[in-house]
Design a protein around this nucleic acid. Structure first.
Lengths: 373, 373
DNA sequence: CACTTGATTGGAACCGGTTCCAGAGCATTG
DNA sequence: CAATGCTCTGGAACCGGTTCCAATCAAGTG
């Protein structure tokens, strides 16, 4: 763009394609419809001058301050419209020290959760005038770089961290910025969070127990791509649920694999290699469960007769594969997390402990009474 | 553990946990780590004063301007680090009239495309210091409100519109803002775009033709949730492909349904109700194709023997359902679209006509020589 | 030696809002 | 009539950067 042309346009110029009003009314200054390349911005000062008021008054109208006479307000609003004035979010952000932008950081490798969380967050902010900056984390990306880049200084008003547990050290770094942070689908003792209630584990175990299963393989996601802190404690929840159901606990039945079909397949291999393979597998995601189903098919193990499978997430495809699953309300979690974050920004104090949302067991054909045992 | 100080790059982020330096150096002003609630911002002026230079010089160091003596630069960088200075993106945005933020608007109801496009965009901007604002569109939301909200004034530097064809009227409104826009997965004569090459249609038709199919049902997405303008011309592409393959063209075999499994089921119902049902269906998405598969199962039609099915997208689940599909490089499209947008922002002139990326036919068990005919 | 040149530097002005204080206008009160 | 209080208004100062012009100084030139 060549801007070397004389730009010393004195008066304010509107961007509006002002209707060709023949009756030469007021508007002494605003000579609209200027040359194509010359884009001029209408500022609050232009509006003030045009409307014959002070900038303070215009600003008051903008931000809905009550102390403006109705007549004045009307005149200013008319002027704004006439000049095609549109306020600058950036200028506003600079002086208010508020950008009206949130940021969410989340892994993209579980597309279902990814989309649902984003939907939930947008649901929460759609009625506000917040915008949402998204930063996706691929497998194996550097957490430090991402978190430090995140919300650089004052670019955003708050951060949502979804399905990613920060390490204590990263948290220390973030804490310096005094930036509100809410965790979604993971927890940390020092941060407010929204998680799925892993009493879901109890429901799954109860379901399998009633069907007669006694050896349940628990497949987890690798807990912390980012941290030393235990993520949602899903594994623990299952152990407790099994103890409560008076089932034997065997660490060999608990393992952690990538959140992918491949991870599920690999887990099944491992389970089948045990002297006493589990008769049921509770996967940490539907994708993993699909891998388990696939592995079972390859090894000629009938589902659910030889091995039952439970997924988690509640993706639409699960129904086509007749997969029993734990439906996790990711959307609601995103929504509530965002609401919580908005509250923090407004100065509310964070709730103590994580907010737990109930999950939902959807029973389908992949779990049935096992034939053996 | 100290991050090496990034050399004179703009987005430099300093998060120095000021070590308790016993040697009481200078720092008369910036008393970091002050009282709990009082957060002090280190500005460029503080740095200038501390380093004994002018603000212009500090700014020059910040933006990597070459005309700074090495010694001075070093001193300023040291001072920045010592004070824990971090530049304000908002202030920078205000004075440069560049926010370094892009915005993408896209429908969330095809999760696969949604995620892949976002991944592609992030891939394009990860090495830059752009951030990405995401605005999802649900089915049936008001296009006008969304587009007008979008990129309000100067909040963002450019907009990506994915899988959403704007109407001419909306475009007029947007044009006023002189904001760079790139379309992804849709086209418009007045805007640069990146689309999948619908010679994919030719590949599909050829594939089915070789298998012996002569009546091919073409299932489309409702073309334009937003506009009067024809979207990618997928239907036309199929018509042309079929004409080229010397297959009869019958409008009854072309229809449009929701991009969902339900849409696929409904389409299949329609096709089966025809006097001569097609022997193959080319769906506009894998989700639709899954609905077709499901509908076929319910109606007791064997796939692929009685009816062949081709999907589109290339979602992972397609392989588990043994679904032949056209893999669309959404990620690459997002990436190239973003690159193109960055180019536009830099002042490059938009390419003429849409950029077309090749698609990829993945043949699986849902297409095989039909038994009848 | 006076003059030109180029490298480096300082800082006022500006980007477009918000905030806050002083002040104007007017009615009410003592 | 002066004092008080209230509503509404104007605009300087500020938010934290960038930009650009003028100034300084050392080196080079005739």
């Amino acid at each position: 763009m060549h801007t070397s042309w004389p730009t010393a346009q004195a008066g304010a110029v509107s961007v509006v394609s002002r209707a060709t009003d023949s009756a030469g009314g007021g508007t002494p200054i605003a000579a609209a419809a200027d040359l194509g390349d010359q884009l001029t911005v209408v500022t609050i000062r232009d509006v003030a001058r045009e409307a014959g008021v002070g900038i303070g008054t215009v600003s008051r109208v903008l931000s809905g301050h009550p102390a403006v006479a109705t007549e004045t307000r009307r005149r200013i609003e008319a002027t704004m419209q006439r000049l095609g004035y549109r306020p600058s979010p950036v200028a506003r952000a600079l002086s208010r020290r508020r950008t009206d932008i949130l940021e969410v950081i989340l892994p993209s490798f579980n597309p279902h959760r990814y989309v649902e969380v984003l939907r939930g967050i947008e649901e929460a902010i759609v009625a506000t005038n917040y915008a949402l900056i998204v930063r996706s984390v691929e497998r194996g990306s550097d957490p430090k770089r991402i978190l430090l880049d995140a919300g650089a200084h004052d670019r955003v008003d708050g951060i949502l961290l979804a399905s990613l547990t920060p390490t204590d050290r990263l948290l220390d770094l973030l804490a310096e910025r005094r930036m509100p942070i809410v965790l979604v689908d993971c927890t940390h003792p020092r941060l407010p969070s929204v998680i799925a209630d892993y009493d879901g584990a109890a429901v799954v175990v109860a379901h399998l127990r009633i069907l007669g299963h006694r050896r349940i393989g628990v497949l987890n996601r690798p807990d912390e791509p980012w941290g030393s802190v235990k993520a949602c404690g899903r594994s623990t929840a299952y152990r407790l649920a099994m103890e409560a159901a008076e089932l034997p606990f065997d660490p060999a039945y608990h393992l952690s694999r990538d959140d992918s079909a491949e991870g599920g397949r690999s887990a099944l291999e491992h389970f089948l290699g045990l002297p006493e393979p589990p008769t049921a597998v509770a996967a940490a995601s539907d994708m993993q469960a699909i891998g388990v189903l696939d592995g079972a098919r390859r090894h000629g193990r009938a589902v659910p007769d030889e091995i039952a499978v439970v997924g988690e997430d509640g993706i639409e495809f699960a129904s086509y594969l007749d997969l029993t699953t734990v439906r996790v309300p990711m959307r609601a979690m995103g929504c509530l997390g965002a609401r919580m974050l908005l509250g923090l920004i407004e100065g509310e104090s964070p709730p103590v402990g994580p907010l737990r949302l109930p999950v939902d067991l959807v029973v389908r054909g992949s779990t049935r009474r096992p034939s053996d045992d």
